[in-house]
Write a protein that binds this DNA or RNA. Structure first.
Lengths: 346, 346
DNA sequence: TCATAATATGTAACCCCTTACATATGAAGT
DNA sequence: ACTTCATATGTAAGGGGTTACATATTATGA
């Protein structure tokens, strides 16, 4: 076989045209500028010699890489998490039919911030899809001053000038509250996530606000922190029960905590939903498989990631590809009613 | 702020040295060739102006990308699969401390073969980590003639000249058989995977061979195909029971089928392991969580991927980086004894 | 003291494309 | 027949690094 390297010059020489013509022929946007006969000749040669353009050269001259970076926190087990699986799936699905590829950009969480990684990733991606931005970007200015377009997934911060795609967690909280309230529950406990989580804040606030509007006040004691952790929720259930043995519903700010709580309730001989209804938040894949299947707020991570990718790619293909992106897009949260919540006394 | 672009020329001018010196200073391998004083001056300037080398240019001139491609089949749900999660995790973990990044290369399975994607990925990765190669490489010659080093994960084909990292499924089958036989089981049924799967072939052969050596013959009727699918195994259990109601053990060629079989047994009121022991293969994450926890053969996917990545990266950092890789590395399979298998009549 | 070697740095070619601008050719308009 | 335009193609200047080779400087040894 011929191991000789074929570059644009070789092909040009064989086709007896200039490299500019070859360049035009191999790029869809400029192909029309080449005469059909020339095109045909070139195509044949390209095929014959198996020529493929050198992407590095393209990148260098064109200043684009046709690659986007997907920024994940580097956490143990991250690739086993449904949340990130959804994002990966969405990005892959969207990109599959485009000419774009993606690179995983894993950033250490502990103490490190974006600054350090600027070198590592700064240059060779055309845009960034970012998860958990607040863990990396110590100062919001870093995010605002990124030299390439960024889209932040599943977070919204109206004070920061960048593109967000997310969900209205506050509204989600309200919907959850409405559901529980409508079923007749009045003695309600809450399992909350960690303080630093904006989502958690919003979910709680929405939930409480709705009940307040109905004239219902949740006893502060009945709001217990379990840091979004299954095992922590598991162990906090009894605290809750000690404070008020007559609660009839628990709102867990995420599904993991709902799972933990329900497992413990089962062990304590308390039937769920019969004795205590439980509602979660996120709609993880396991939610439907749980016994009983968990009623929860569906957060469309997959859709969020899809839309985020779409926004980014569209932008990259526009004339403003180099400029930063800005905007907020809110996708709907919805209640998924399954078996873990029922009418009171039913 | 200065939006001016800093390239190696700018820094060279400011440092009052030539670009060659800058180049040496920014590359670890050549840094020692630069005088300490010069180095200091350069480093300060780099820091001051936030200079980062243009990777595309590096790639073009150095003909390396410091990026490896990870080839996955593009299947729905692939990112939710434990198998691929393990691979992703292993690759990420290994690469995290290196200067390498990875790109996901998703290839359509149906009908398509590698040839078509040559252009898409052929150039801009230094090496490839390949899963399920037999789905993409219609002819083995394609794999052998790749222009960049490749490592095939979890498959071994001694006839093909490339690098494989995998497991001895035949041996695994034997170990499983030994376990079941040692527990006193003699009436044994098998749930097999699809015919095209090499793994399945090997697992079965190993299992059967061991029993044969012990003078035990499995009735061909008791070997039922369930294509590695949980639901299929679920529905095939009764067939098995009809053929021989007195079987005391089932060897499922993968965990999924074991799960399906056990679910059905439970429904039929047949206690497992008490009445029928079940052993699987793979040791998926759910195996430990199942009720009862599944005894199974552990296939170290994570380790396989780690080792594969290691082999590839080491090779890329050697002088032979451009040459193709060849070899076979076998990692151990081991029995993980949990609760789904017990001594007969215990 | 001078030839020789070791060290530090510079020069320039090369990697392979894209694209603004220039040129050549032929068609259309008057 | 001549200017004017549209179309097809070519020329050459980047884009930002790496590195073989050349050169300048200093240290080493007899």
């Amino acid at each position: 076989m011929k191991d000789k390297k074929f570059n644009i010059y070789e092909i040009a020489r064989k086709a007896n045209v200039s490299i500019a013509t070859i360049s035009r022929a191999i790029n869809p946007e400029t192909r029309a500028k080449v005469a059909p006969a020339t095109l045909k000749k070139i195509d044949q040669l390209i095929k014959k010699y198996g020529y493929t353009p050198n992407l590095a050269a393209k990148h260098l001259s064109g200043n684009v890489t046709k690659t986007i970076g997907v920024v994940f926190p580097y956490l143990p087990g991250i690739f086993y998490s449904n949340y990130y699986n959804h994002i990966l799936a969405a990005v892959s699905d969207y990109l599959f039919d485009t000419h774009y590829q993606f690179k995983m950009l894993l950033l250490k969480v502990a103490g490190d911030t974006w600054d350090k990684y600027d070198f590592k990733v700064g240059e060779r991606v055309d845009g960034l899809l970012i998860t958990h931005w607040f863990k990396f970007f110590s100062k919001k200015s870093i995010l605002e001053n990124m030299k390439i377009p960024c889209v932040v997934l599943n977070d919204v911060d109206r004070k920061i000038k960048t593109q967000f795609v997310g969900v209205d967690h506050y509204l989600g909280g309200q919907i959850a509250a409405n559901h529980i309230y409508s079923l007749g529950h009045r003695r309600i406990a809450m399992l909350s996530g960690p303080d630093w989580s904006m989502d958690n804040q919003q979910r709680m606030k929405g939930f409480i606000a709705f009940l307040n509007k109905k004239g219902l006040r949740i006893k502060p004691d009945l709001i217990v922190k379990a840091d979004y952790l299954e095992h922590m929720a598991y162990s906090k259930v009894e605290t809750l029960l000690k404070i008020d043995p007559k609660i009839t519903a628990i709102f867990a700010c995420n599904d993991q905590m709902a799972f933990g709580a329900m497992s413990r309730l089962k062990e304590l001989g308390i039937a769920s939903p019969k004795d205590i209804s439980v509602i979660g938040f996120d709609d993880e894949m396991d939610a439907a498989k749980f016994t009983p299947p968990l009623t929860t707020m569906h957060v469309p991570i997959y859709d969020i990631a899809t839309r985020g990718t779409e926004i980014l790619i569209n932008h990259l293909q526009s004339k403003d590809a180099k400029k930063s992106l800005r905007g907020i897009e809110i996708l709907p949260v919805r209640l998924v009613e399954r078996k873990s919540t029922v009418k009171i006394n039913s």
